[in-house]
Design a binder for these strands. Structure first.
Lengths: 240, 240
DNA sequence: CGATTGTTTGAATGAGTTCAACGTACGTGG
DNA sequence: CCACGTACGTTGAACTCATTCAAACAATCG
């Protein structure tokens, strides 16, 4: 029932990306799939997490909640992203499936010992963790110093960057993206209220910087124009 | 001239913490020390960084600047923290010495190949990177969802946590801390203006939650009272 | 000394929140 | 097929917290 690693859609991007076929065989033995429906909680902060996992398909969010209910999203988990922390038995964050999600789960103990013995896994995990750290820091800049309008523009351009995966065609025109999040989730991500998100999106639309079809489909007629609104310096392509 | 690794003050906390004596010898060959004076910039975002390094002594900040001059601090670099990213030739951030700083620098290329061949280094670097990621995410919560007063209270309690290094004596009384940062640097850290920082500190003082002697020395008569002001749930000790 | 750097405090302004109403799409059951 | 409920989104108006602009204070250093 478990699909073959060799045919896995995230074979070359997930934590196993650098593994050879022999190592994949070892992984096959400690892995199992698990699925969650949109809206389901995969783990609450503090819960025990008996597995570590790769997101195979779907989108999940990583977040945290203050006592009085204020929430902040700390990361988006997209296909190939890694869930959990080796060496820590409980989740430090709330993990929630936004769409239907399939995880490729590794039992914790065996995965941890494999991690110790298999450089290919450790190397890849290090790369991925450093990427996450860069993303978290980019987000700190957005949360700490940007205006609501800049936050929205930044979020849209990050989605665009990701959708047209790869370095940025800064002179791109007519880029289309589908927002994977509700207004509320965007607000939680950007440290805003959902009303402010809605207003700023409306404003960008009114000014022709984006076009909306329905509520989730955005067209960006002129990427450079959107990038100007992010507050980042003019044309600098993020992350060489 | 290069000090012996075996006598290094950060021997058991830095990236080399898990190395055996043979590996240390290898490191000795590619390392050199470099010092910076308080206020000096170690690297600007975008600069080429020909080395990777450990902070041996002193405090530095990791920050980023928007075109119009707004700055956000993204991390504090304390002794044993790692500077730079293997595989990336340029610094993604501004790195500034806050006090006099000594770095133990490794030439990039040889360090990177050692990293590939020495599991002890990769493992430790992974741990440290995951810790940084947790810290970055804690800040995201602070930046995105906390009020000015909560931000200040959080910063003070983080300093207190660090000063009384180790898990938290939540019932501590009369804890004294010395602020390692100016009001402006705190503002850059918390995503506030320096005026707001000053006002909130004054307010906490007025209400007896903290006592000030001079501008840098803070006494916290009742830690629990300060923790209540952070907005985090009552007494939860962060990070087991 | 004045100059500089860091800090405090005040008053006015404004960006974003809060509270509230309304709109729109979709699914379910009568 | 339409009425109704629910979830998501938009818009308006009042309010508020933090910022901005401004002035003054304190400590340190040539």
């Amino acid at each position: 029932m478990d699909a073959q690693c060799s045919e896995c859609p995230i074979r070359y991007r997930a934590v196993c990306a650098k593994c050879d076929s022999e190592e994949l065989e070892q992984l096959e033995e400690i892995k199992f799939y698990r699925t969650y429906e949109a809206g389901q909680t995969i783990a609450w902060a503090g819960d025990e997490l008996t597995f570590l996992a790769s997101v195979v398909s779907g989108v999940a969010t990583l977040g945290q909640t203050l006592e009085d209910g204020r929430t902040q999203m700390l990361g988006l988990l997209l296909p190939s992203d890694f869930v959990g922390r080796p060496g820590r038995a409980s989740s430090a964050y709330d993990v929630v499936a936004v769409s239907n999600v399939t995880l490729c789960c590794f039992r914790r103990k065996p995965f941890e010992s494999m991690l110790m013995q298999t450089p290919a896994i450790g190397e890849r995990l290090l790369e991925m963790t450093m990427d996450e750290l860069d993303a978290a820091r980019e987000w700190m800049m957005i949360l700490g110093r940007k205006t609501a309008r800049e936050k929205i523009a930044s979020l849209l351009s990050i989605f665009a960057r990701r959708e047209s995966a790869g370095p940025f065609p800064a002179r791109a025109t007519g880029v289309k993206i589908t927002l994977p999040l509700t207004r509320e989730a965007m607000a939680d991500y950007l440290g805003l209220t959902l009303e402010t998100v809605s207003r700023q999106i409306s404003a960008l639309k009114r000014e022709g910087i984006i076009h909306l079809e329905g509520k989730r489909n955005v067209t960006i007629p002129d990427m450079a124009r959107l990038l100007q609104e992010t507050g980042d310096e003019g044309a600098r392509g993020h992350f060489a």
